[in-house]
Amino acid sequence: MYRMLIAAFAALATTAALAQEAPDALVKKGVDDVLSAIKNDKDLQSGNLDKVMKLADEKVLPNFDMARMTRLAVGRPWAQATDAQKEALTKEFKTLIIRTYSSSLSQYRNQVVEVKPLKVAAGDTDVVVRTEVKQQGGPPIPLDYSMEKTAAGWKVYDVVVDGVSLVTTYRGSFGDIIQKSGIDGLVKTLQDRNSKGAPAPAAPKK
């Protein structure tokens, strides 16, 4: 599943000026721009950390609602966390996502992403943008984005790859860690793994 996340993150890269566009148009623009950039940059293809971090911070993560995404990944224990713990969790989860993105970049192999047209009613504030990742030698893989309309435009709060939710998968492993060592234990686990560049806990698999 790691190899599919490059398409997921690439689809969310766009400029701030596009934030008010329809969610499917935003995804389509991101697909075209970022996959083109990757195809023409061997450093990005190889997962150059400096370039990946820059790309993620400037083009990708601004289109994620990281606070909501982290809250959903932590689940019920989020309500008992202090403000300082919530801030630390969000910071470390963001780093975790960037490292996942880096790992995915190195596995990009000219996949094609088809964005399905979406009808958005005037009052809609929560939608799912559906896409398919087409790859040689295998069936297309569905990749969906749960998106919410905010004051800053449409933001992603979950990614579902081939039926597997990113936040739900992390919620399972995060819950085990919290049960054993509390919120501070989860923060420390994420800090340790991020600082070592180790694989993320319970990385999504299919």
Score class of each variant (00 low, 15 high):
residue 117 P to L: 02
residue 115 V to T: 12
residue 83 D to N: 06
residue 68 R to V: 02
residue 131 T to M: 08
residue 130 R to T: 07
residue 56 A to Y: 12
residue 84 A to D: 09
residue 40 N to L: 11
residue 125 T to D: 08
residue 91 K to N: 01
residue 131 T to S: 07
residue 49 L to Q: 12
residue 131 T to H: 05
residue 98 I to D: 07
residue 40 N to P: 07
residue 92 E to N: 09
residue 33 D to E: 10
residue 88 A to K: 05
residue 112 V to H: 15
residue 82 T to L: 00
residue 75 G to P: 01
residue 52 V to F: 07
residue 72 L to G: 03
residue 100 T to C: 08
residue 60 V to T: 06
residue 58 E to K: 14
residue 103 S to T: 13
residue 112 V to M: 15
residue 114 E to Q: 07
residue 42 K to G: 06
residue 66 M to K: 01
residue 86 K to W: 05
residue 92 E to P: 04
residue 36 S to L: 13
residue 113 V to M: 10
residue 55 L to F: 11
residue 47 G to F: 14
residue 33 D to W: 14
residue 86 K to R: 15
residue 108 Y to P: 06
residue 45 Q to L: 14
residue 53 M to V: 11
residue 124 D to V: 07
residue 49 L to A: 15
residue 65 D to A: 01
residue 81 A to Q: 03
residue 127 V to Q: 05
residue 99 R to H: 08
residue 116 K to Y: 09
residue 98 I to H: 06
residue 106 S to H: 10
residue 35 L to P: 05
residue 132 E to S: 10
residue 34 V to N: 04
residue 121 A to P: 02
residue 48 N to W: 02
residue 121 A to T: 10
residue 95 T to M: 07
residue 90 T to L: 00
residue 74 V to Q: 04
residue 74 V to G: 03
residue 73 A to C: 02
residue 83 D to C: 00
residue 69 M to V: 08
residue 111 Q to K: 11
residue 120 V to T: 11
residue 116 K to G: 06
residue 56 A to I: 05
residue 113 V to P: 06
residue 117 P to W: 04
residue 77 P to R: 03
residue 66 M to L: 10
residue 128 V to C: 08
residue 64 F to H: 02
residue 122 A to Q: 07
residue 69 M to N: 00
residue 35 L to T: 14
residue 111 Q to V: 12
residue 101 Y to V: 11
residue 61 L to F: 13
residue 94 K to M: 10
residue 68 R to F: 13
residue 121 A to C: 00
residue 121 A to V: 05
residue 35 L to W: 09
residue 63 N to A: 09
residue 41 D to E: 11
residue 58 E to W: 01
residue 87 E to C: 00
residue 108 Y to Q: 05
residue 131 T to L: 00
residue 68 R to S: 09
residue 94 K to T: 15
residue 93 F to A: 03
residue 133 V to L: 11
residue 88 A to W: 01
residue 94 K to I: 09
residue 69 M to Y: 11
residue 125 T to A: 04
residue 97 I to W: 07
residue 96 L to P: 02
residue 34 V to E: 14
residue 103 S to H: 13
residue 46 S to N: 11
residue 40 N to E: 15
residue 52 V to D: 07
residue 126 D to S: 05
residue 88 A to N: 04
residue 128 V to S: 00
residue 135 Q to P: 03
residue 69 M to P: 00
residue 118 L to A: 13
residue 87 E to W: 01
residue 107 Q to F: 13
residue 60 V to Q: 01
residue 83 D to H: 00
residue 96 L to Q: 08
residue 41 D to L: 09
residue 110 N to H: 15
residue 66 M to W: 03
residue 85 Q to A: 01
residue 56 A to R: 02
residue 48 N to V: 11
residue 123 G to E: 09
residue 72 L to Y: 11
residue 118 L to W: 06
residue 65 D to V: 00
residue 108 Y to H: 09
residue 94 K to D: 04
residue 32 D to P: 03
residue 85 Q to P: 04
residue 100 T to V: 12
residue 40 N to S: 13
residue 105 L to K: 07
residue 63 N to Q: 10
residue 64 F to L: 12
residue 79 A to K: 13
residue 56 A to Q: 06
residue 78 W to E: 05
residue 43 D to R: 10
residue 36 S to G: 14
residue 132 E to W: 13
residue 93 F to E: 00
residue 126 D to T: 05
residue 89 L to M: 03
